[in-house]
């Protein structure tokens, strides 16, 4: 597959008199191929938005190479801008304009047929509110309008920064369906979000950034499989005795409430056999698969049992410089 977005060694440092020098992105790499719905994850302040802004020519990178649809960005971004729909953070619109007028202005500025406005308002569920003023919109409706503005160009590549911000559960589901339908029609989608469950549901690929550096990249299922400890939840009548029996069988097990967590299990029949042979019958044997949230928190160190509130810059850098890249192997 051809690369739709390619970022290599992106670096960006912000300088200010008050806060001094702050490295926002530190040698970051990203590869998004055609047809992917690619999740872009990272804790607050990890460099997600700076990366997207640099890619779209809004922020000047210190170094690194970026291409969008095969054209170097930002130098030749104007050549492909007509095929790239993007929202970066929550865009602001004129409160006095109606949703329809807002999109009509953008369409006119971008040379897009005005007839497209009604289509995209319909797509994002704002058809009946298109003639209302933007200031009367809820946060979720403004977000839908932002997505509509990104869709106006009928893009080949859609870049969405936190598109689910402010959306209600139904809106989140609609956004998910919309992205799936766009992907089914051949649109490549790069979406950053904090709603990890959503990313897991809609994205086939994911890149995780922490402290400006990539800490994981690849297919979602492969990233998850890379963090699978082969753990099982086991329910038995005598948990304490079961632990002893499993230890004797060479397995690692700990009591967790009224159940056991057994790790390092390649074949779950080993557990049931070890317990059954001693008269302990297994009531439940459930594999504990990692989800994107646990992998994200593990990789970014964005959660810990500390009594001190976590600060936005407290996330972990990549361990020993290693990056899990299931497309390219492990970079050291």
């Amino acid at each position: 597959m051809s690369a739709v977005i390619e970022i290599e060694g992106l670096r960006k440092t912000f300088h200010s008199l008050r806060n001094g020098r702050r490295v926002a992105v530190d040698g970051f790499d990203l590869l998004v191929e055609a047809g992917q719905v690619h999740g872009f994850l990272g804790p607050n302040g990890s460099g997600k938005t700076t990366t997207l802004r640099a890619l779209l020519g809004l922020v000047r990178a210190d170094s690194g190479r970026m291409t969008v649809l095969g054209e170097p960005s930002p130098e030749l971004l104007p050549r492909v801008a007509g095929q790239v729909g993007a929202i970066v953070e929550s865009p602001q619109f004129f409160g006095n304009f109606t949703g329809h007028r807002t999109l009509r202005l953008l369409a006119r500025a971008g040379g897009v047929p005005v007839s497209r406005v009604d289509q995209v308002l319909d797509l994002v569920g704002l058809h009946d509110r298109g003639d209302d003023r933007v200031k009367s919109y809820s946060l979720g409706m403004k977000q839908r309008l932002a997505v509509a503005s990104a869709l106006l160009k009928d893009p080949r590549l859609l870049i969405l920064d936190e598109p689910a911000n402010g959306l209600d559960p139904a809106g989140i589901r609609e956004m998910r369906d919309l992205m799936r339908s766009l992907a089914a029609n051949g649109v490549t989608v790069l979406v950053s979000s904090h709603i990890l469950g959503e990313i897991q549901l809609i994205c086939d690929h994911v890149t995780i950034i922490s402290r400006g550096r990539r800490v994981a990249a690849g297919r979602v299922d492969e990233v998850l499989a890379g963090h699978d400890r082969h753990e099982f939840l086991v329910r038995v009548a005598e948990p304490e005795r079961a632990v002893e029996l499993l230890h004797a069988a060479g397995l690692t097990a700990v009591v967790d409430g009224e159940a056991l967590v057994v790790s390092g299990v390649g074949d779950p029949t080993v557990v049931s056999r070890a317990l059954g042979e001693q008269g302990l019958w297994v009531g439940e044997l459930t594999p504990l698969r990692p989800d994107l949230e646990s992998v994200f928190l593990e990789l970014t160190g964005a959660y810990g049992p500390s009594s001190v509130p976590r600060q936005v810059d407290d996330s972990s850098p990549p361990r020993d410089g290693a990056v899990i890249d299931l497309d390219r192997g492990v970079d050291a």
Partner: peptide, 14 residues
């Protein structure tokens, strides 16, 4: 200040 220019530059990155 409001991000209107950013919005426009996403459409016309010149």
């Amino acid at each position: 200040n409001s991000g209107g220019v950013v919005n426009l530059l996403l459409w016309r990155p010149r």
